[in-house]
């Protein structure tokens, strides 16, 4: 199929990148912009603010709802559904969307505020994390894999907010998540089971209680490493930071022996589609594994020879 046809067929979404990726992990935004359109997911940038996050919500839930409503109303105005890169943002926006769709009088109140900046919440948009959309169109993903990542052993960490509250997220079973694992297997990699798979990464405590956060990181890394993983795969920028930069801090403080690099899922998709480690932003990560890097470079060579 030619390129024009594909562009026309592509569904457009308002991309909700989120503050963490925009300001701290721009290489993840870079890889998302590269990879999503190749999976027939069109993306558009709108003037979104912070979703806002759970820390903001802890000060004042009403303002939290007002700010989220503004983001939702922006997408509605463009007639677009929202596609999240961050489970936390996705959770905020899904919850706010659900509350405001259900509660007509609260919606009217919030709309008075939005009126001051010329916006209205009507309840016409949907919000999804990109993994939800990818899982729905798994055939397209499979078609685009040119370099299967055979033999790469990954510890899947779905994290919390893509799963819970399940009433709002409606994606996977929070006690035994399997969908991210399925998506990883579609790329040819192997997933390993590890005892601490559903333990929270502990990211939000890293700033205020480094001791607790570091012990959580240690237990996650040890559990995955000793089960045979070569890297983590995550759908979340906060988990990514926790297993990347913060892992090095925890390792220094607690002096544990192991370390594991981390991939954001779309980085792996990029590799499986033929981009190299540099093009998917791997080298912006702080935790490296030369052995794994060589293995990935070799895969590319082997696949090309086999063709």
């Amino acid at each position: 199929m030619n390129r024009m046809n594909r562009m026309n067929r592509m569904k457009q979404y308002a991309l909700f990148t989120g503050c963490t990726i925009k300001a701290a992990l721009p290489h993840i935004e870079m890889v998302a912009r590269k990879v999503l359109p190749l999976l027939d997911i069109g993306i558009k940038e709108l003037a979104f603010t912070c979703c806002p996050n759970a820390d903001f919500r802890s000060t004042d839930e009403y303002s939290w709802l007002v700010v989220a409503a503004r983001n939702l109303a922006l997408a509605e105005k463009e007639g677009l559904e929202i596609l999240g890169l961050c489970p936390g943002c996705t959770q905020t926006l899904r919850e706010a969307n659900m509350v405001l769709k259900d509660d007509v009088s609260l919606r009217a109140e919030i709309n008075k505020r939005l009126g001051k900046i010329g916006l209205t919440f009507k309840g016409t948009t949907e919000v999804n994390h990109h993994l939800v959309v990818l899982h729905r169109q798994i055939d397209i993903l499979l078609q685009r894999v040119t370099i299967p990542l055979y033999g790469i052993k990954l510890a899947v960490h779905t994290g919390c907010h893509l799963l819970m509250p399940s009433r709002i997220m409606q994606f996977d079973n929070p006690e035994q998540p399997r969908k991210l694992g399925e998506l990883v297997k579609m790329l040819g990699s192997t997933i390993i089971n590890y005892p601490e798979e559903t333990l929270c990464c502990g990211f939000t405590l890293f700033g205020s209680h480094k001791d607790i956060a570091s012990r959580i990181i240690r237990d996650k890394v040890e559990s995955a490493f000793l089960s045979g993983a070569e890297a983590f795969v995550v759908p979340c920028p906060s988990c990514y930071q926790q297993f990347d930069r913060n892992q090095l801090v925890a390792k220094r403080e607690l002096k544990f022996e192991y370390q594991l690099p981390v991939f954001y899922y779309l980085q792996l998709v990029g590799l499986a589609m033929g981009f190299d480690l540099d093009e998917v932003g791997y080298y912006h990560g702080r935790v490296r594994s030369p052995g794994l890097e060589d293995k990935i470079k070799l895969l590319v060579k082997k696949t090309v020879v086999n063709l």
């Binding site: 503050c19 300001a23 721009p26 935004e29 870079m30 996050n53 820390d55």
Partner: peptide
């Protein structure tokens, strides 16, 4: 968040990094 719209401070270092990746 209320004054800038973002939960992270926007610095010129951040924007230089973004620019190097051809991001706005």
């Amino acid at each position: 968040i209320i004054t800038t719209g973002f939960s992270y401070p926007i610095s010129s270092a951040v924007n230089r990094k973004r620019e190097s990746m051809e991001l706005e």
